[in-house]
C-alpha cells in the first residue's frame, strides 16, 4: 500500500518536473533459470513514463522471457522488478498490483474463443476493477472504436481476420487502462497484408503517450516510434542505443551480425 502512495506522489510531481519522473518499469540484476538453463543474466534496465522501447535479438535470446517476467508470467530467481511503484514478489498481492498496471499483447492473440469481442473486453474490467456491466461495456466500446473495430463487437474471434483479432487483443488490454503495455512479437503471426493495420494501431498508441516495450523485428516501427532499441543475445542485454544509431551504426559485433541477418530476410 505504501508503494502505491509513492507512485501517486511521483505522478503529480512529474507534471511539474517531467524530467524527474520515477521509472515506470525497472529491472535490477534480474536472473532467470529454466531448470539448469540460464535464460536471463543480470538484466538491468529501466523505462521511464511514456518511453517506447523496442526489444530485439536472435531467436532464443530471452526477449519473451524478459517481458514475461515483468508481469510475473515467469517468476525470477533473483533481482528486483518494480512496476509503477509496485515491487514484484511471489506474493499474490504484489503480482495482482503489477498486473493491474501493465497490459500484454501476445503473438498468438490469445483471445477467449468462446466469448464475443465485447465479452472478451469486459471480462477483466468487471472481475478485477469491479465495474458494472454497463460501465465495462462503455469502456470496451470506447477502446474498440479506438482500434477501429467497434462494428465487430458482437462477433466471435474466429469470425475475424488475424489483424482484427490482434487489434481486439490490444483493445482488451487497454480496457484495464494500464500504465504500460508489453508486446511480444504482435505482428509475426500475421499475414503480411495485416501487419500494417496492427502497427498503425501501435503507433497511434505510442503517439498518445503510452509506455511501451515491444519485442519486434519491424524496423520501420522501431525507427518511427522507439526512443531506444535494446538488443539481446544469450540472455544478456548487449546493446542499448537510439534507433537511428542502432540501425545505421551498431556498436556491437553481435548487433551487426543480427542486423545483417534481418536485412537479408527483408
Amino acid at each position: 500500500m505504501r508503494e502505491i502512495d509513492v507512485t501517486r506522489t511521483h505522478d503529480s510531481a512529474s507534471r511539474a518536473f517531467p524530467k524527474e519522473a520515477a521509472p515506470m518499469i525497472e529491472m535490477r540484476q534480474v536472473e532467470k533459470f529454466y531448470g539448469p538453463f540460464h535464460a536471463l543474466k543480470g538484466i538491468d534496465f529501466s523505462v521511464t513514463k511514456g518511453e517506447k522501447i523496442v526489444l530485439c535479438g536472435p531467436s532464443g535470446s530471452g526477449k519473451s522471457t524478459l517481458i514475461r517476467c515483468i508481469n510475473h508470467l515467469e517468476p525470477i530467481a533473483s533481482g528486483e522488478i518494480v512496476v509503477a511503484g509496485h515491487r514484484l514478489s511471489d506474493s499474490q498481492d504484489a503480482v495482482d498490483a503489477v498486473r493491474r498496471e501493465v497490459g500484454m499483447v501476445f503473438q498468438q492473440f490469445n483471445l477467449f474463443p468462446h466469448k464475443t469481442v465485447l465479452e472478451n473486453c469486459i471480462l477483466a474490467p468487471m472481475r478485477v476493477r469491479k465495474l458494472s456491466r454497463a460501465e465495462a461495456e462503455e469502456t470496451a466500446r470506447k477502446y474498440l472504436e479506438r482500434v477501429r473495430i467497434g462494428d465487430q463487437a458482437a462477433k466471435y474471434p474466429a469470425q475475424l481476420s488475424g489483424g482484427q483479432q490482434q487489434r481486439v487483443a490490444i483493445a482488451r488490454a487497454l480496457c484495464m487502462e494500464p500504465k504500460a503495455m508489453l508486446f511480444d512479437e504482435p505482428t509475426s503471426a500475421l499475414d503480411p497484408e495485416m501487419v500494417k493495420e496492427v502497427l498503425d494501431t501501435m503507433v497511434s498508441l505510442a503517439r498518445d503517450g503510452m509506455t511501451m516495450i515491444c519485442v519486434t523485428h519491424e524496423m520501420g516501427f522501431a525507427r518511427q516510434v522507439a526512443d531506444r532499441v535494446i538488443f539481446m543475445a544469450d540472455g544478456e542485454i548487449v546493446e542499448e542505443n537510439a534507433p537511428d544509431a542502432f540501425f545505421s551504426n551498431p556498436r556491437h559485433e553481435r548487433s551487426r551480425a543480427f542486423l545483417g541477418e534481418i536485412l537479408a530476410h527483408h
Binding site: 508470467l73 500484454m104 501476445f106 498468438q108 490469445n110 477467449f112 478485477v128 488490454a173 484495464m176
Partner: peptide, 22 residues
Amino acid sequence: PSGQSEAANALGLPGWSRMVDV
C-alpha cells in the same frame, strides 16, 4: 491451450475467474 491461462493471468483475473470464465 496454455495461452488462454496466460492471457487471463496477464489481465489480472483472479484464479477462480480464470477457471470459471476462461
